[in-house]
Amino acid sequence: MVQSTLLRFIYPPPASWFINAMTVITGAILVNGGLMEVKGKSMQYSKFYNTSKKNAEASKITELSGRKGMLVVYAPAFVASVIFLAFMRDEGLRFTLVTSALTVHFFKRLFEVSFIHNYSGSMPIDIVINFSASYFLYTVTVTYSQHLVAELPEPVIDLKYAGTASFLVGITGNFYHHYLLSKLRKEGEKQYKIPQGGLFDLVICPHYLFEIIGFIGISCISQTLYALSFTVGSAVCLMGRSYATRKWYLSKFEDFPKDVKALIPYVF
């Protein structure tokens, strides 16, 4: 019953052990990441991770500046999406929309790293490589999955146009709230402040909320099981990270508004 209902919205899984394995592995890793955030084991490029020079020298790990590190994280996925968009034009409208969304998504991230975000710390090179490989693998896998289902019958319920709208809402809202975050501190300031404006008056991580909406858009355009698995896993991961972020702000600011939720206004 559940399977037949689900297949009204997505393509059947392709006959590919790689795609099917990645569907399970990706979802499991992201969900586990969210649970680790709740337990206090935060992602190693967040403000909760201590990357002091003393630790770096003790472990002999090469580090990159935060800006250079994040450029390396996103650049391979962006290049891959551009190549797919440019050289696989005969795969149909849905494929073009998916690769276009991926290209815009990673271009926005590179633009924000270069011109919007402020960085004061550094990133261990092994963490940079791990995240870069993860985003690159996501781009390749979601695109390959889309290629494999191109000749299969379309899902009964077509979500690609609703997905495009959702993606545009998500990427716009995410960019806007990243911009607000970048304006919190004046040049030279390093102390953290409570974000204000936009949906920050309701939740502490509206940028994560809109990122989830963007990923929902990509999965609706794609309508493949892999894209759905990544979106569900990412949502759980970002829920965990937003929970950890709110907990951090509560511990650092006595005047943090208790009615400001973590991710979903009035709910969570």
Results as ranks from 00 to 15, higher is better:
Val2Ile: 12
Ser4Ile: 04
Thr5Arg: 02
Thr5Asp: 04
Ile10Ser: 03
Ser16Lys: 08
Ile19Arg: 01
Asn20Trp: 10
Met22Cys: 11
Thr23Phe: 04
Val24Ala: 15
Val24Asp: 07
Gly27Met: 15
Ile29Ala: 14
Leu30Cys: 07
Val31Arg: 06
Val31Gly: 07
Gly33Val: 09
Leu35Pro: 04
Glu37Asn: 14
Glu37Gln: 15
Val38Ala: 07
Lys39Asp: 11
Lys39Leu: 15
Lys41Tyr: 12
Ser46Cys: 09
Lys47Thr: 09
Phe48Ile: 05
Thr51Leu: 03
Lys54Tyr: 09
Asn55Gly: 01
Ala56Phe: 01
Ala56Arg: 11
Glu57Gln: 12
Ser59Met: 01
Thr62Cys: 08
Glu63Gln: 11
Leu64Gln: 07
Ser65Met: 07
Gly69Gln: 07
Val73Phe: 12
Tyr74Ile: 06
Phe78Gln: 06
Phe78Thr: 06
Phe78Gly: 04
Val79Pro: 03
Val82Asn: 02
Phe84Ala: 14
Phe87Gln: 02
Arg89Gln: 12
Asp90Tyr: 04
Thr99His: 01
Ser100Tyr: 11
His105Trp: 11
Arg109Asp: 08
Leu110Ser: 01
Phe115Gly: 00
Ile116Met: 06
Asn118Gln: 15
Met123Asp: 13
Ile127Met: 10
Ile129Asp: 00
Asn130Pro: 00
Phe131Tyr: 13
Ser132Phe: 13
Ser134Val: 10
Tyr135Trp: 13
Phe136Ala: 12
Tyr138Glu: 05
Tyr138Ser: 00
Thr141Ser: 15
Thr143Ala: 12
Tyr144Lys: 01
Gln146Leu: 11
Gln146Met: 14
His147Trp: 12
Ala150Arg: 15
Pro153Gln: 07
Glu154Arg: 15
Pro155Ile: 05
Leu159Gln: 10
Lys160Leu: 06
Ala162Gln: 11
Thr164Met: 13
Ala165Thr: 13
Thr172Glu: 00
Thr172Trp: 12
Phe175Ala: 01
Phe175Thr: 11
Tyr176Cys: 05
His178Ser: 02
Tyr179Val: 15
Leu180Phe: 06
Ser182Glu: 05
Arg185Val: 03
Glu187Ser: 14
Gly188Val: 11
Gly188Met: 09
Gln191Phe: 11
Pro195Lys: 02
Gln196Ser: 14
Phe200Asp: 06
Leu202Asp: 09
Val203Arg: 02
Val203Met: 09
Val203Asp: 00
Pro206Glu: 02
Pro206Asp: 06
His207Val: 05
His207Asp: 08
Tyr208Gly: 07
Tyr208Pro: 02
Phe210Asp: 07
Ile213Gly: 05
Ile213Gln: 02
Gly214Gln: 09
Gly217Trp: 02
Gly217Phe: 09
Gly217Ile: 10
Cys220Trp: 15
Gln223Gly: 04
Gln223Met: 10
Leu225Met: 14
Tyr226Val: 11
Tyr226Leu: 15
Leu228Cys: 07
Leu228Val: 14
Val232Met: 12
Cys237Thr: 03
Met239Gly: 15
Thr245Ile: 00
Thr245Gly: 01
Arg246Met: 08
Lys247Phe: 09
Trp248Glu: 12
Tyr249His: 10
Tyr249Gly: 02
Leu250Cys: 13
Leu250Phe: 04
Phe253Tyr: 14
Phe256Gly: 09
Lys258Gly: 01
Val260Pro: 01
Val260Ile: 09
Pro265Asn: 03
Pro265Met: 00
Tyr266Trp: 14
